[in-house]
Nucleic acid binder design. Sequence first.
DNA 1: CTGAAAGCGCTTACAG
DNA 2: CTGAAAGCGCTTACAG
Lengths: 318, 318
Amino acid sequence: MPVTLKELGARAHVHPSTVSRVANNDPSLRIAPPTRQRIEALLRETEYQPNGVARGLKLRQTLVLAVVIPDITNPFFAALFRGVEDAASPRGYNVLLCNTDGSPARQRSHLQSLHARRVDGVIMASSFLKDPTVRWLRHQAIPYVLVNRYSDEGKPTVSTGAMRRRGYLAALADRGLAADPRLVVESGYTEEGGARAAERLLALPDRPTAIFAVTDMTAVGAFGVARRMGLRIPEDVAIVGYNDIPLATRMVPALTTVHVPIHDFGAVAARLLLEQIETGAPSRRRVVFNPELVVRGSTVSGAGNPAAPQLTPAFATE
Amino acid sequence: MPVTLKELGARAHVHPSTVSRVANNDPSLRIAPPTRQRIEALLRETEYQPNGVARGLKLRQTLVLAVVIPDITNPFFAALFRGVEDAASPRGYNVLLCNTDGSPARQRSHLQSLHARRVDGVIMASSFLKDPTVRWLRHQAIPYVLVNRYSDEGKPTVSTGAMRRRGYLAALADRGLAADPRLVVESGYTEEGGARAAERLLALPDRPTAIFAVTDMTAVGAFGVARRMGLRIPEDVAIVGYNDIPLATRMVPALTTVHVPIHDFGAVAARLLLEQIETGAPSRRRVVFNPELVVRGSTVSGAGNPAAPQLTPAFATE
DNA sequence: CTGAAAGCGCTTACAG
DNA sequence: CTGAAAGCGCTTACAG
């Protein structure tokens, strides 16, 4: 049983509130120096730590943040989480991790539970288009930040997959190439999804010679299929991913991909969230990082293994 | 501001405690059916959720667990965490994640903070030999479970690295081979550490033809060094890892390694912890999984890519 | 100035 | 039987 203020007050022959004031260094407290010293010694001796639950109830502040993601087993989200923790932990926050596996039901139930616990804020990297839970967060006035995608109600909604598809189509148009709808296949964001999609693409009568996968994990799935079919990468089929997860440079050949500073995604998200929490005002602030293409062996035979570029964030306020 | 019992009591013209009893389905509560219905309707209508912080203070139970690991970015710990969450979440617990990067200072400060928050229990996968924080956990009577290593005070202490070294030496002895101390190099458990250790080993005048790395991540580091030196795997140097992380099968050649059911490590640890929490008694229970060697291309040229075996746990009580 | 009281939101033993 | 009270451990506005 950890020691309480009441107990400490009794031992020091002062009122518990006085102990609290000494522990919290209340500047308005005037107290005889010997008494203060006696209390301080007691605090040190007992290694007094205020009960965070009681403190949370009184102060309406738990110093707990939550990160909601599809799956921590995906290296992208692991790096993202580290970014969040590295930014939040020095400021006294602990971070809850919730995996949804992309299930709206699990996401919903996690969010309910986080709300019941009165977490100070939520970072969501699992929101989908027109996500009702995002509306719910706003309605409950729970501070939140969306990472790596966004969800908007009024305007036409956009998210990562849709934007990357648009980029692909724009690039084709730039070169004056026609878009062939059979060449665009839904994959989801997992290795398995990437494998299924690649199977369909590589079975087409007029086999494509290059695949742009929506994420690196999707590209990993495509890699496996190409290899099992005996296709050489990049000679028979070139593959490009997105995110530049650590695995990208360890593949053989190394994966050409679009570098994004994943750790910074998390750290910046945490900072935006803490800003909201501290000011008490929700922000419509948006941070966009300029992505950068990193060319490696999966598209150019004999290409080296270039390291990731350093990117600087571009802040935007809606 | 979420609705409170006091407010609900006022609206239903009953005492707040009566609302609490209805919400918690208190069997000892006798109440006029129409009143009960009125209260139940109100509960549904307002989507009442008891304030978890207040509940935690009263009940001395936060329904929060913590997982303390070196680094979630290491796939081993990501899989372990999923095991914990998958076992704990259906029972109403949320899980805090703390990364220590192997720093005793960070571990200590995380643990202090977890204690202040009154988490119900801690799962530690970052403890080292004779770890003072383990003694501290016991002293504070905080329920805990150590994963993938253990730390013991009375008896000679043992942990993963030391045990694997012993296994290596025992295997040499079995074959009547002499142990050469220059062939045993400290690497730590990271890719970088593995790379440094492999550099030393592969620079020896009488270059070893096989490396047993203490973990898969260490093996990944050795892989990179061997490749940069132009050595063929397994022809010039064979490499074996430990853990069978997902990355193992994606390497080229695939990594020969020792399979352990990482997800189950986490799930079983969570169950042991919940058992302690519910019974209120610390347990000295120990669960050992039998590891199994999975031979892949990094040791046998042309070996297939065999899947992981199914393992069953062996329970042991000290 | 400083000690005692109120109150955060809950649960449950207890008096009427 | 059921309503009102106590108390979990804290912080801070307020009376003396």
